[in-house]
Amino acid sequence: MDSTDLAFFAAVAHGGSITRAAARLGTVPSNVTQRIQRLEQQLGVPLFYRHGRGMTLSHAGERLLPYASTVAHTLAEAGKAMQAGAEPSGPLLVGAMETTAALRLPDMLVRYAMDFPEVDLILRTGTSQQMRDAVLARSLDAALVAASVIDLAAQPELLAELVGVEELVLVTAPWVSLFGPASIWSSLQDTKLIVFRDGCSYRALLESVMRRRGTARLRMMELGSLDAILGCVRAGIGVSLLPRALVEPLLVDAGLASLAMHVLPDGAGRVETLCVRRRDGFVSAALAAFLQRVRQQFDHSVLVTPALPLTESPLA
Rank of each mutant, 00 (worst) to 15 (best):
A7T: 13
A10H: 05
A11F: 01
G15Q: 03
R24F: 05
T27M: 10
F48G: 02
L57E: 01
G61E: 01
A72N: 02
E77L: 13
K80Y: 09
R104K: 07
M108K: 11
L109I: 15
V110D: 14
Y112E: 08
M114R: 10
D120H: 13
G126A: 06
R138G: 03
L144C: 10
V149Q: 03
I150L: 07
L152C: 14
A154K: 14
L162N: 13
V165T: 15
L168Y: 08
L170T: 01
L170K: 01
V171E: 06
T172I: 02
V176M: 11
P181D: 12
S183T: 12
I194K: 03
R197I: 13
Y202P: 04
R213D: 05
G224V: 14
S225R: 09
I229P: 00
I229S: 02
G231D: 07
V233I: 03
G236D: 05
I237C: 04
S240A: 15
L242T: 10
L246H: 14
L251C: 09
L256S: 15
M261T: 02
D266T: 05
V271L: 10
E272R: 14
A288C: 11
Q297I: 00
L303F: 03
T305E: 00
L310I: 11
E312P: 06
L315A: 08
